[in-house]
Design a binder for these strands. Structure first.
Length: 462
RNA sequence: GUGGUUGUAGCUCAGUUGGUUAGAGCACCAGAUUGUGGAUCUGGGGGUCGGGGGUUCAAGUCCCCUCAUCCACCCCA
């Protein structure tokens, strides 16, 4: 490490990750705090898990695409030692080799899988149904673009250990509360994977279920004709596509559409899916009508293939970002892969970074001052600094954020600093003030200043 | 992973058919103001024009490679 550096390192960041300055942090906290408050109101308990997990925990849970997007961590020490031993030095760089030989850890891809891992490891000390929320960054080795980052925060709420559709309805209420409190207008789309499965069964294309969901998910982008075209490419004939058209052409309120769809999909999993949607909507009504738009949408599919029941997606109704601000659903057997089968869970996720982006675009953040500091002591000389220091400490002891400019610089410089920091008051201290035992307190917003005795200072600026 | 876009000062950008010493606004620093911020004026610091190679008497400008960026696809929050 004792390298001689003649060239300064160019400061830069890997793509897709970001620094957050003071103002951004304040605004992000506002989003996180709002979500936290709502989660806790619904009885969810906080959980934090490590950024890194064993690759065996992560791999194979997110589909082929997900595996490709996992950040893998090179083993420490000589990561290639095992590999060299197996294949010999000379082959390095010439052939592919099993990744597990050099990397056994990875950065988490979402919060749901680590949660499932946690539940299985701690099953004996948890009271089921277990509700937890988790607000932490996740990592994806994706190509960054608008609204897409390599490190971003997910804010998840999941319940594990109950099949009740009351939970489904509560999660919609959580979305409703949270987005309403943030001042965003959104549409909460819901569907059931069982309806989609029923559709596939109805068309005799059950083995193409996953491929079908991927195509359906594009409906709002490529339209019904586009979807039919792509399904045609998958080998769907006119009759099958007619079935699909029928499902998407049902009209009426959410309840009516679910009822009609159920009739279309008799003898399939779709019937049960529609019953569950009906029941969820009923619970939602009983809990109280939501403020945000809730829309049953049979084209909603969700990419992650562990969902098995009701699924959710939230999209903004304002602003230019069209991708989803959150999503979730029920998964019947997420803990099964960790050796605890038959436990059902349901959960939702908020994409905090996208929520931030939309709110920033729409100017929805309440005005926050740059700093919390209320008062800056501006001292003309060293003696004044000594004189004012006990007053500074006194303010802080009483809980009032205050600072002293650390050098006796010229006033102009000190006041300019206070101004650029957004500090509302400056206490000027020089020979005069020391001599009369009073401070000159300046209100930076009005420009007015007055002479204040030391013991009045706290009251004047609070 | 696929296709395209753009790389010039800390930031946003200009820079003609290749032609002297590469510019502007904002930001920053200093002064006008030896004890008063925001506004104004004056001055100043700052750039291997993303990197490498090539064409040319001459390249920020043209060609090739490479890296980065943003956008779209794929997929997702």
């Amino acid at each position: 490490m004792a390298e001689v550096r003649n060239q300064p390192v160019k400061p830069a960041l890997p793509s897709g990750v970001r620094d957050f300055g003071p103002q951004e942090v304040a605004r992000r906290r506002y989003v996180f705090d709002t979500l936290r408050r709502v989660f806790e109101r619904y009885g969810y308990q906080p959980l934090e898990t490590p950024v890194m997990e064993l690759l065996s925990t992560l791999e194979g849970k997110y589909g082929e695409e997900g595996d490709r997007l996992l950040f893998r961590i090179l083993n420490s020490g000589d990561a290639f030692a095992v590999w060299k031993e197996k294949y010999g030095d000379h082959l390095i760089g010439q052939f592919g080799f099993p990744l597990r030989d050099i990397a056994e850890k990875g950065l988490r891809y979402d919060l749901t899988v680590p949660f499932a891992r946690y539940v299985v490891m701690n099953r004996h000390r948890l009271a089921f149904p277990f509700r937890r929320y988790q607000i932490q960054p996740v990592f994806r080795a994706d190509r960054p673009q608008k609204g897409r980052y390599r490190e971003f925060y997910q804010c998840d709420a999941d319940v594990i250990g109950s099949n009740s559709l009351l939970l489904e309805a509560e999660l919609i209420k959580i979305y409703d509360d949270a987005f309403s409190e943030l001042g965003l207008n959104v549409t909460i789309r819901i569907n059931s994977r069982k309806v989609l499965l029923g559709l596939a069964q109805c068309c005799g294309a059950e083995q193409q279920f996953y491929a079908m969901t991927v195509v359906l998910d594009k409906l709002d982008r490529i339209g019904l004709d586009g979807v039919e075209q792509e399904l045609g490419r998958l080998g769907w004939n006119a009759e099958q596509r007619q079935m699909l058209r029928a499902l998407f052409h049902v009209e009426g309120s959410n309840e009516e559409r679910v009822q009609k769809a159920g009739a279309l999909l008799t003898q399939t999993a779709g019937e049960e899916g529609c019953r569950e949607l009906q029941q969820t909507l009923h619970w939602l009504n009983v809990l109280g009508a939501p403020h945000q738009a809730v829309e049953v949408d049979f084209s909603l599919a969700r990419g992650l293939n562990y969902y098995t029941g009701i699924i959710y997606e939230v999209v903004s109704r304002d602003g230019t970002l069209k991708s989803s601000l959150g999503g979730g659903g029920r998964y019947d057997d997420l803990t099964g892969v960790f050796g605890l089968p038959g436990i059902s869970g349901v959960g939702i996720s908020f994409g905090a970074d996208r929520i931030y982006d939309v709110m920033a675009e729409l100017n929805l953040f309440p005005a926050t001052s740059e700093s919390h500091t209320r008062l800056l002591f501006c001292c003309m000389d060293q003696a004044s600094m000594y004189w004012a220091a006990p007053l500074l400490s006194d303010l802080r002891r009483r809980g009032l954020p205050a600072e002293m400019y650390p050098e006796p610089e010229k006033l102009q410089k000190q006041l300019r600093y206070a101004h650029s920091r957004g500090i509302p008051y400056a206490a000027l201290v020089g020979e005069q003030e020391r001599y009369t035992n009073r401070l000159t307190v300046k209100d930076l917003r009005s420009g007015q200043q007055q002479s204040v005795a030391p013991h009045e200072l706290y009251e004047k600026i609070i």
